[in-house]
Write a protein that binds this DNA or RNA. Structure first.
Lengths: 138, 138
DNA sequence: GACGTCGTAACCATTTCTGTTACATCAAAT
DNA sequence: ATTTGATGTAACAGAAATGGTTACGACGTC
């Protein structure tokens, strides 16, 4: 999630400066301080969600598919974190116990409501917001 | 989190039926379908948070330290999950890049606000609520 | 056809999570 | 005082997730 947002924020800043608006995974990786393959993997998820687009061939690379003002962190989250944050039992509980049988759907509903509230907060922040508030430190 | 809530819910149901209101980690482990040591570890965190109490010696065990109506899932979460759910960069980003230098505090603030919203939802649900809504399935 | 980049598989190291064994500690019951 | 039955905790093992690396085929521009 953090790497994805970092990449999009960096693209929102840098892409407009390029004549074709295209950057490479290696350039993004340099800012994130990681391997280009890691960036390509994450940007692949963002592309599947329609947030960025990739070009192949000579002079290939990545560009934003939508305006940074229209990409919320909720969008990023949905593209990168498909699973629920709070998990149920790792191994199924004892089916002979009424509490163990009945509790999973109750917890799932509570968790989903809580995570939904979290996503609503993320929906209120856009990549453009993050790019604007990001100022170089000392 | 799920095991902790399961344990508390089970205790809220079972403890009142016991003359001294005490249950053992082994009994809880049987419902959760895990090892008693796992239960003791988690209940240890809940005890540090003042949600349950433990007794040692002969006939020892655990009991709720507060009424189930007064224990919210926010309390449980705080006792069991001390770290933020959404993490920042695993390895520090490239300090030579302005975006990389400036983005961590911005994201941390957004994440904290989102997680705070999630915790607020958890605060609205108590162990007593979960115990009441938990009905044995088919 | 050469070049530069994506796309993806394969692999490794590290960490995290669960579960397990083992044992010292403690206080009630006898 | 001894026995008993449980907690408290360290140590360990296995599985799974995570992050990073190498390698290489696919692709489209030059």
């Amino acid at each position: 999630m953090t790497v994805a947002t970092h990449a999009l924020t960096w693209m929102a800043r840098v892409c407009p400066k390029r004549p074709d608006g295209i950057v490479t995974s290696e350039q993004i990786a340099d800012s994130v301080n990681t391997n280009p393959v890691v960036i390509r993997r994450i940007l692949g998820s963002l592309r599947d969600a329609g947030l960025v687009a990739s070009q192949r061939g000579h002079g290939a690379g990545w560009r934003l598919a939508r305006a940074p003002e229209s990409i919320s962190l909720r969008d990023v989250y949905g593209a990168v974190e498909p699973d629920p944050l709070i998990a149920l039992h790792a191994t199924p509980p004892n089916q002979k116990c009424p509490v163990a049988r009945g509790i999973p759907p109750v917890l799932r509903e509570v968790y989903d409501r809580a995570e939904g509230s979290m996503k609503a907060e993320l929906a209120a922040v856009t990549v453009a917001d993050v790019a604007r508030e990001t100022v170089p430190g000392p």
